[in-house]
């Protein structure tokens, strides 16, 4: 492998591994329990690496325990979005009526203003893990579907598929055994990309106040910091550190995706 790719892969995997460890065994990283309270608004110090927040929680502890939250929502919604995207993408690449309907569906969702719709839907659906995962997946499948559609169309017109048809293989047989395997690397790349999208959407939603406030994700932490006076106290540790974590996680996935991407 080329050196730069190797570097990217190692870097990405390291960061990802760090976060995975954080979410699986949080106790290794922090001695404090998640809801343990100390003095309010402490500055970063030896005993509290990132200080404490407005109710006295240790911020670093909150971030560590928030990792699993962020992961859980990010990964499950992007998996859901991936499945949806693959399904709709393949269906929309078919000829005839079905293809047109699903193509139209894709175009419809492309045009909808994403965040605005999410706000109204979130107010209607209420909080709760399932709701949020569904909401994020609801707009997350679009990009995947488009790329799957483009690639499927390309594959369908290639010569070996024609060959299959000449041999008389059924449509479903072709779809499952011949088309699908070729989509795998695209699917994998889209999954990594999708997690990024999910994490960003989730953080935007929690910044606007939609999210589980008792088990905060990183985005929710920023929301609370913003509304509980972190600015006036100059508690930039509270405001920015969760954002840095979001960035690092997104970067990790991106790097891995970059390293594994096949050169066209």
């Amino acid at each position: 492998m080329i050196k730069s790719r190797l570097v990217a892969l190692i870097l990405g995997c390291t960061i990802l591994a760090l976060f995975v460890f954080m979410s699986v065994c949080p106790k290794v990283f922090t001695p404090y329990a998640p809801k343990q309270t100390f003095e309010l608004w402490l500055k970063p110090s030896a005993s509290h690496i990132l200080g404490t927040n407005d109710v006295g929680y240790d911020i670093f502890t909150e971030i560590v325990y928030g990792t699993s939250q962020t992961f859980f929502i990010g990964i499950s919604s992007s998996l859901l979005a991936l499945i949806l995207g693959a399904l709709i993408g393949v269906l929309s690449a078919q000829n005839g009526f079905i293809g047109q309907i699903f193509s139209g569906l894709i175009n419809l969702f492309v045009m909808l203003p994403k965040l605005v719709c999410l706000i109204v839907l979130a107010a209607f659906a209420g909080n709760g893990y399932l709701n949020r995962i569904l909401l994020i997946a609801l707009f997350g499948w679009v990009e995947t579907a488009r790329e799957i559609r483009a690639k499927t169309i390309k594959i369908k017109s290639s010569s070996y598929i024609e060959n299959c048809k000449i041999h008389g293989f059924g449509k479903i047989h072709i779809a499952v055994f011949h088309i699908l395997p070729n989509l795998f690397d695209l699917l994998f790349a889209r999954f990594l990309n999708g997690v990024n999208g999910s994490v960003m959407t989730e953080s935007a939603l929690s910044f606007l106040g939609i999210g589980d406030l008792y088990n905060p994700t990183w985005g929710t932490m920023i929301n609370l910091a913003f509304r509980r006076g972190a600015f006036i106290r100059g508690a930039y540790n509270y405001l920015l550190m969760p954002a840095v974590c979001i960035s690092l996680l997104v970067l990790a996935f991106y790097l891995i995706g970059l390293a594994l991407k096949k050169e066209n």
Binding site: K35, D54, V55, G209, I210, L213, Y214, L224, R227, R228
Partner: peptide, 16 residues
């Protein structure tokens, strides 16, 4: 109320 950050904190402590 999710719109009131202070109330959210009250609720959190009550739950704790």
């Amino acid at each position: 109320r999710s719109s009131n950050a202070t109330h959210l904190r009250y609720a959190e402590l009550v739950k704790n």
